[in-house]
Design a protein around this nucleic acid. Structure first.
Lengths: 336, 336
DNA sequence: AAGCCATGCGACAATTAACGTCGCATAAAA
DNA sequence: TTTTATGCGACGTTAATTGTCGCATGGCTT
């Protein structure tokens, strides 16, 4: 019976939802029967009891009915187990994601990271007791902290997005005291500068709502609508709110740069056709760099961030913009 | 039998390594016996055969011996299955990680993301056929591309780090034609501005090697050494190579900022004591922001990236630095 | 080249646990 | 209180898992 028994128990494990949700035994039995495992409910009961002694399953006994679920903190199952190098890489990835994603989102990946952690910790290497000491991530952006996110709202919104259902939202606009109420169809999620936005459509054109400003969300039993020819990519490119995308054609960038910064560029290329040459204009230790890139806000930030460590030569429009920045900056600090 | 049989099969699954590695049946049997499952090897053989019909297991038959492993492309097992919102969040996380981590590192997380993808794709919602359309990440840094990494080197290095073993490395310095050879003890991994560095110690003081410049790595059968009192955190803080950390005490930052930028700060706080007030100096639509932050290179970049959109008021040392930047920048574009 | 050893695997019998059925206990609903 | 639904213990039957044996095969040694 290896055949049937193991497969059935496996299917059963897949049918059980994770912690906030739960499922009654009879439900699970029904689902199993539908999948072709024709056993009595008694067998399902026994299976559940057995499995719960091995895995992190628990039952919520409301009266006489038992509803089963995967325990929240439980490590879950992750096979094949990551080998040791993979486990270290996973922990590194976790460190990277921490500042990027809302904690609620990160929690969803916990089982994966927990598996990695167990691998690392279960190895009796004396040095590994302090495994966090082996990993450092120092390029996260520690300056700004993402706003708190209501995990229930997030769950509801994602569910609606996934099932293409309409939503009723309470939304707290930035400059109003009282929240507004929207009834909308969700179209997509955009992650922009560390904030999550829900792109929606109501009675008129699509617009976006900041996820962290949604104070309550309720699933409606109505199918979501979507404008014909709407694509999230197109929306993000067109809309003024997300000006981060390229505008226009790629440009041929020519800049002068201090050597220490150019060193970094040598390894992290701007483009495949990037060239780095000694600068011939007489600046000691500077490099001349050419590359084909998209012109967007990101590029401006990147150029600005080097302060006086970079000089834009071409294209002339970009150089002119930098000139204006320099002039405006001068006014701040050397008012005439 | 549920008791023993299921547990044993589970233990067996955990003992099987993933694709590049493999393990012989007798090995697995030994390991099971050591773990207290006293069965004959015949049972193990049968279990393996059964399990391989359900899971992505395969055996490599060299002559008469069978060596088992988890298939490389195989989806593996991931339980509890992420529910639909979690699956979307995972795919979002994957998009975030793509530009941050070397592809080789990302591959190690494939099973997790694959599970999410299967969830999303297996749902027959008509809209979800094009699930990537529902998710956009536009704050990744598309400007610079991380260098290629040798996955075998990465694997070897991580293994050495994990097991605290010495390594023999071929290293290609940035400005030398020929690679050098090092015999070192690994101390840790540092992720810095998108590059991975291996901190090591040889005969003298600890130093770091860029992981992507290591052309070959070989595990030595010798225990790694570590200077007494060495901590990776301390090294990163002290060493000149990683100047990204704070230097000195936190400072009380006072800046003027354009309103559109300040809006973003209102949600992603610089610090918990951050204040945003209308600017009284007469600049129309500007805000005055105060916050307590660490002064580090990151802060300088961040301030610079706004170009003329920000003016530092205090502390005076920082303002002076910005003055100098403005002056230097002016020389680039308005040579006197 | 031949014998030896290790391993895989088919077959078979004995054990054993898994399964369905029945009945009782219990909690919620009526 | 009665009714209904569910959980669970018990029991007998069924069926599968397990250990043992034997044979076949491939590699290694002498």
């Amino acid at each position: 019976m290896t055949n049937d028994s193991l497969l059935r128990q496996w299917a059963l494990l897949e049918l059980i939802p994770r912690a906030p949700n739960q499922r009654h035994t009879s439900d699970l039995h029904q689902a199993l029967v539908n999948r072709g495992y024709e056993v009595t409910i008694r067998t399902v009961q026994r299976d559940l009891l057995n499995l719960s002694r091995i895995f992190c399953l628990a039952s919520n006994e409301t009266g006489r009915r038992q509803a089963w679920f995967w325990m929240k903190g439980g490590s879950g199952i992750h096979l094949p187990l990551p080998d040791e190098p993979a486990a270290l890489a996973l922990l590194l990835a976790e460190e990277h994601l921490k500042p990027l994603l809302p904690p609620e989102t990160l929690d969803l990946m916990k089982p994966t990271f927990a598996a990695a952690q167990r691998i690392v910790e279960s190895t009796p290497h004396e040095g590994m007791a302090k495994w966090p000491e082996r990993i450092q991530v120092i390029d996260r952006n520690p300056l700004q902290k993402p706003p708190a996110l209501d995990s229930r709202v997030q769950h509801t919104v994602y569910t609606a997005l996934f099932q293409n259902q309409k939503l009723k939202l309470n939304y707290q606009p930035r400059y109003k005291k009282k929240p507004s109420e929207y009834t909308i169809s969700p179209l997509g999620i955009v992650s922009h500068r560390g904030l999550l936005y829900l792109v929606v459509v109501g009675d008129y054109d699509p617009f976006q709502l900041a996820l962290h400003r949604i104070t309550a969300a309720e699933l409606l039993d109505e199918k979501g609508e979507s404008p014909t020819d709407f694509t999230l990519g197109g929306y993000v490119n067109d809309d003024q709110a997300f000006t981060n995308r390229r505008f226009g054609e790629p440009i041929k960038l020519v800049i002068r740069m201090q050597e220490y910064a150019a060193k970094h560029l040598a390894e992290c290329q701007l483009s495949t056709d990037q060239t780095i040459e000694p600068d011939t204009s007489g600046k000691e230790g500077w490099k001349r760099i050419t590359a084909t890139v998209n012109e967007n806000e990101e590029l401006h930030w990147w150029l600005n961030s080097y302060g006086a460590g970079v000089e834009v030569i071409e294209p002339s429009a970009l150089r002119k913009a930098m000139c204006e920045t320099a002039a405006a900056l001068r006014k701040h600090y050397e008012p005439s």
